[in-house]
Design a binder for these strands. Structure first.
Length: 720
DNA sequence: AGCACGCCGACT
DNA sequence: GTCGGCGTGCTC
């Protein structure tokens, strides 16, 4: 006798769906959220498949949970993500499934209105409540009490008396409906034609991926808002993905100006009831526009009609723990599956996206000018070989003068140094001992503010010792080289009367404090800002007219084949901070190598040439064309480190046909949250099924079970 | 992710 | 003797 069997995927690190018998009379469909017994407890899962079969000794599905079921496209997407990232299917599901928390009491909204009956005993407070309720409108209890100037107790008393009757009110919508025709911005001809192209893409049978490239200040946001408006007009949903930090009041205000309401936002700070209701609203299709961080890509949209990836070049789109993925790439795939166009917006597109444009995979729409005739900042180099800088100082006289001029005019200067802490290297003056990380052989960076030595590689922290750990000399430690904290010291000496602030990711206070500080800077509460790459991202500082790059050469010499590209993008973004307000901006770039292609391209503003050149350089170095570089991350527990390393080496030794390991395979690598990581750089010649190979390798390798995990990080273009 | 099971040290 | 520390492995 055959029975109905449900294959249920459970949001845990399990790679296969488990089979359960469906009890007679239980209506069940694929995608439904169900409760099932698992070992000794009950857990929630999603019906991934239904079939007939012998279900004799299977456990039974307990019940169907009242939660939005996952559509076929959503399930297809999650399957793809799991396959692509080599993550267990259950882990992929865990990213897309938010379950209602049964413990949370339902918030009841009770409305009250007059019934006509009068209370047995009248009091002044009751009189006021009745007077206030006389308008006949149904109001919340709390509101009515407030209006009458009494406590809620009085209102409750009148309800008991029968003078007021209660009405169950519908929940307030989680998000208001954006009006696509609320406040269309006046667009320039160039912007309008770009917007038209984006809007037209929504009508195509096979919607494209479009790279929207526009210099900072060219009005990209307003242009893609037109596509969002069109999606809303069509009754479909739109998702705007952005790096978490970019979800600022500034962005929300621009959205409200265009659509009349704030967008629903989704990020790690949205929790509890709000999160649940948003999730439900998105699944029902009631929420039309979501602006969110990368996790918003995994929500169960009812009818997703457009995805915008703002600042598509941002590395914050990469998730590096749990499931490893790049939200921009996953967005492209989700767009394909949902039949929705994807807009990748950036002033400094990633090299992968440019190559995809060149190969005809993505379309290209350009906004070449700053809106309102504003010009791009003028960029000049400061040749450090020719400048005389006092010992222990890092600002050249040229830069000091420029900062002086700038702040004197009431404008802001940004000093950019991509190095956290006080000094990148600490050594002992008497024995020359270098302070190194015990885990990963990187130098320990002094953080004077925190009075500690920190490994930027693995996070190891130790106190700054009083005496040298090697020779015992007292107070013999010398800081070598500058970090932002040290620059702040120098600035305080040079400009004692100016208001100065340091921004770096390790400052205490977290995102909240950072947002407040960014807002304070935008409001002109500081004269000189000293920052790491944190300041390169998305915030607008209208008073900033000068950007000084203290050491443009940082990052140019690392072994990573993407170093040049990354440095170019970073410097382009940072220098682009200048002159975004009324006044024109300029940038001074201190460098030892003014002729380096990255610096030359930055000064000339010729990004196209840089990318052509960079492509050529990589080809000459035997590196693959872009998009076929992958990193494999093998991780193992601390105890298993040696074994993990052996495994990484074994993988490197036997690449499948068409795959070559470029290294570095034997690098000691980082210890992150108790796990060692080994990163192998791999290139693929053709459309090799790297995932298939790795899965095969993992199952064949007898020691892969247990604590070793393998993740992959590769451009998905060849799988589309 | 839980939760059981099991193998070690230190307590009423 | 057994209580409980955590390391290991399984869950249809």
């Amino acid at each position: 006798m055959t029975a109905r069997i449900a294959d249920v995927l459970i949001p845990l690190a399990l790679d296969t769906a488990y089979s359960y018998a469906v009890p007679d009379g239980l209506a069940l469909e694929e995608g439904d959220v169900v409760q099932v017994p698992l070992a000794t407890r009950e857990v929630a899962g999603v019906v991934w498949g239904l079939r007939e079969g012998q279900g004799g000794n299977l456990k039974k599905v307990t019940e169907v949970i009242d939660a939005p079921s996952l559509s076929p496209t959503m399930r297809k997407f999650l399957d793809w993500v799991a396959w692509y990232t080599l993550a267990p299917k259950g882990s992929a599901l865990a990213m897309g499934l938010k379950l209602p928390d049964g413990d949370r009491p339902e918030v009841v909204r009770v409305g009250v209105k007059l019934s006509g009956a009068l209370p047995k005993r009248m009091t002044p407070a009751r009189q006021r409540v009745i007077a206030a309720a006389e308008s006949g409108l149904v109001r919340l209890k709390r509101e009515l009490a407030q209006e009458a100037g009494v406590s809620v107790g009085v209102v409750d008393g009148l309800i008991d008396e029968g003078t007021l009757e209660t009405v169950a009110l519908l929940q307030e919508p989680v998000a208001e409906r954006p009006d696509p025709d609320f406040g269309k911005a006046g667009l320039s001809d160039g912007q309008q034609s770009a917007a038209d192209t984006l809007v037209a893409a929504l009508a195509e049978e096979h919607p494209p991926v479009i790279l929207l490239e526009g210099v900072t200040g060219s009005g990209k946001t307003e242009v893609y808002f037109e596509a969002v408006a069109e999606a809303v007009r069509k009754g479909r949903q739109a998702l705007i993905l952005m790096p978490e930090i970019a979800l600022t009041a500034q962005f929300l205000d621009r959205f409200s100006a265009r659509f009349g309401v704030k967008p629903a936002t989704w990020h790690s700070g949205v929790t509890g009831r709000k999160r649940e209701r948003l999730y439900a609203g998105i699944a029902s299709g009631e929420v039309k526009v979501v602006a969110g961080a990368r996790s918003a890509l995994f929500l169960p949209y009812a009818d997703l009609g457009l995805i915008v990836v703002d600042e598509e070049h941002e590395t914050a789109y990469k998730q590096d723990d749990g499931v490893h993925y790049h939200a921009r790439d996953m967005a492209v795939v989700r767009g394909k599956i949902e039949n929705a166009p994807v807009i990748l917006a950036s002033a400094t597109p990633s090299i992968e996206s440019r190559v995809n444009v060149e190969r005809g995979r993505y379309r290209h729409v350009r906004l070449p000018e700053r809106f309102g005739g504003r010009s791009l900042p003028q960029i000049r180099t400061v040749d450090l070989r020719k400048e005389t800088i006092p010992k222990g100082r890092w600002l050249s006289p040229t830069l000091v003068t420029a900062v002086e001029q700038t702040v004197e005019q009431g404008e802001q200067a940004l000093l950019f140094l991509n190095r956290r802490g006080y000094a990148p290297l600490t050594l002992c003056r008497s024995c020359a001992h270098r302070y190194e990380c015990p885990n990963c052989s990187a130098w320990l960076v002094e953080h004077r503010f925190r009075r500690s030595l920190v490994c930027h590689h693995c996070g190891h922290v130790e106190r700054v010792p009083q005496a040298c750990v090697e020779c015992g000399s007292i107070d013999s430690l010398v800081p070598c080289g500058p970090g932002v904290e040290r620059i702040a010291e120098e600035v305080a000496e040079l400009f004692p009367d100016r208001r100065c602030i340091v921004l770096s990711s390790d400052m205490p206070g977290g995102t909240e404090r950072l947002r407040a500080e960014l807002a304070a800077i935008a409001a002109g509460q500081f004269d000189i800002v000293i920052g790491t790459q944190l300041v390169a991202k998305g915030h607008n500082f209208p008073l900033m007219t000068l950007v000084g790059v203290l050491d443009a050469d940082i990052g140019l010499t690392s072994g990573d084949p993407r170093a040049a590209e990354r440095t170019f993008q970073l410097l382009q973004q940072v220098t682009g901070r200048a002159g975004r307000g009324e006044k024109p901006g300029r940038a001074l770039v201190q460098t030892w190598q003014p002729d380096h292609p990255v610096i030359a391209a930055l000064v000339s503003g010729d990004a196209e040439r840089f990318y052509r050149e960079e492509t050529r350089v990589r080809e000459m170095a035997g590196l693959p064309p872009f998009g076929r570089l992958a990193s494999l991350i093998v991780s193992a527990t601390e105890r298993e480190a040696a074994e993990g390393h052996a495994r990484a080496m074994a993988l490197a030794a036997e690449p499948p046909p068409g795959v070559a390991v470029l290294g570095p395979a034997e690098a000691p690598l980082a210890l992150i949250r108790g796990r060692y990581r080994y990163r192998l750089l791999v290139k693929t010649e053709r459309e090799v099924d790297l995932q298939g190979y790795l899965r095969d390798w993992m199952t064949r390798c007898p020691k892969t079970r247990g604590n070793t995990r393998v993740a992959i990080d590769v451009d998905p273009q060849s799988f589309l």
